[in-house]
Every structure is written in C-alpha cells, then in structure tokens.
Design a protein around this nucleic acid. Structure first.
Lengths: 136, 136
DNA sequence: CTGGATCCCGCCGGATACTG
DNA sequence: CAGTATCCGGCGGGATCCAG
C-alpha cells in the first residue's frame, strides 16, 4: 500500500502523507505480513494457540473447518516467521506441541485491536452495504 | 479466528481467552473485513486516497500494478462498505472522483498501526525466516 | 476518460489415500 | 498421532476488446 509511484511526479512528494515513513523496500514485506494477517487460517490458528499450547489434533479441533493440508502449511509458515514454535517429542505415540512465541502473541494483540475496530464499526458498514447509495 | 468450537467441550469455556468477547454471529463479518484489510488492492487504494481525492486514472497511477478490472472491483467494494465515496460528474470528458470517507480514514489509521507493528518487528521475522530452526 | 464484458490461466485449497 | 503426496475443481485476477 501507500502508493509509491511519485517517481514521475517530483512535485507530489508532499501529497504522500504518513505513508512516506514506510521505506519502499519494506513495502513488499509489509504486504506479506498483511496477507498473513488477512489469511483465514493463520489468525484462526494463532487465536487457538492464544490460551495455551496445543497439539496437532487439538489445533484441528480448535480451528473449525481447517484441513490437514492447510493446518500443516499454516503451521509451517507461522513457525518460519517465528510466530509459533513447534516442539516434537520422540515418543511412542508421536506428540507435537505448537505454542505462541512472544512475537506471535504481540501480533495477536495488534490484530485484536483491529478486530475491535471492526466490531465497533460493523454497524456502519452494514448500513452502507444495504443502502448502497449510487451517487451518479 | 478465535476458535469457536467449544460446543463439544463444555469444560473448555475458560480456555477461550479474550476471543470470548467476540460474539459468534459477528465472526464471519470480522473475517470479511479482515480479508478486505489483507487484500492487496483495497489497502493500496485506501492509502492512495489518504492524501486527497483522486480520479480513476490517478488511482491507476498511484496504485502500482493494479488492473482496470481490479481497480473497478475494489473501488465498488470500498464504496459499498462506505469506506470511499464515488462522485461522477456528467461532463463532456467524464470525470469521477473517489474520496475517503471518515470511516475509511479511521480504518486506515487502525491499519497503519498494524503496519507500524510490522515495520517494528520485520527484523525479528526476517531473522526467523533465514534461520528456520527445525526443532525436531 | 471511465469503466463493462469476456476469455483464460495459475494457484489456492479441499478431499482422499498413504507413511513413520 | 502427525503428518506427506497427489489429484483436481473453483475462482481470483490479468489481458484484451468494446462501449457510453
């Protein structure tokens, strides 16, 4: 986000607003994280792990509708990003525990504040959706 | 997010954490907005509009890489949600101006705080990504 | 200039079956 | 139990052409 053309509009630098604070080289990265946040399963898993560490099967239970494939993929992503930890115990019945890292927890907090906004304003949005005033 | 099974685990009510604050009937709605936030083009457009109202072509310029199809679709979505306004002037060369609504601006602020988090922690995430410590 | 209509392909993600 | 491998259908979204 934060439109970053401006290359051909030297005079437009003043128009860019607060977005100018975000270096262009971090833009793609920001989008990656934003995609992750917007991802249905990522947030579902993180939320499920918020209360306490969970095993694979428990995650499947606590993330309604997630498939094995997506659970595995999502978990791997979150692990690689350092948002969750994966601990495998070499036992007779294999056991693996997933847990939130401090980083993951802090992300969840931020997202929670966003959710709070949505809950606060979902009335207004619903309103606009029903009365889509085509001002033409 | 905020795993909402618990139906078959009557004793698990205590585990749910802060997510219990979110009514189940708003969950799907929250996800819709979260998807919109995570959507590449939505945020790009909102950010572009933050500085000032823009015309169709200007939006195309300021949202690098967006296609006509996606610009039109995204704009319509945002308009229906009451996040932007679309004003068409019946002139000889057709002119349409898109502008952020207060609601849209407030959403952008929230998202900006999320972006701030990303910028603050992208170092840690990058670290974890490179040294994907497979704790097995 | 501001879109609408169509075609079409890539890939996301569900379902299913198999393994250590 | 905790995954991996494979198939495959749907659709998101780019490209292109057309219209008011």
């Amino acid at each position: 986000m934060c439109a970053m053309d401006t290359a051909d509009r030297p005079d437009a630098a003043a128009d860019r607003g607060p977005c100018a604070a975000i270096p262009a080289d971090q833009m793609d990265f920001v989008r990656q994280i934003l995609d992750r946040v917007g991802d249905k399963w990522s947030m579902l898993v993180i939320s499920a792990l918020e209360a306490r560490p969970l095993r694979y099967t428990e995650l499947q239970r606590d993330a309604p509708g997630i498939s094995q494939r997506m659970l595995t993929l999502t978990a791997r992503q979150l692990q690689q990003d350092g948002l969750v930890t994966r601990t495998a115990y070499a036992e007779v019945p294999p056991r693996v525990e997933y847990a939130l890292t401090p980083l993951g927890r802090s992300l969840h907090h931020v997202v929670t504040s966003l959710i709070t906004w949505v809950v606060d304003h979902h009335g207004q949005i619903r309103e606009h959706r029903s009365s889509s005033t085509t001002t033409s």
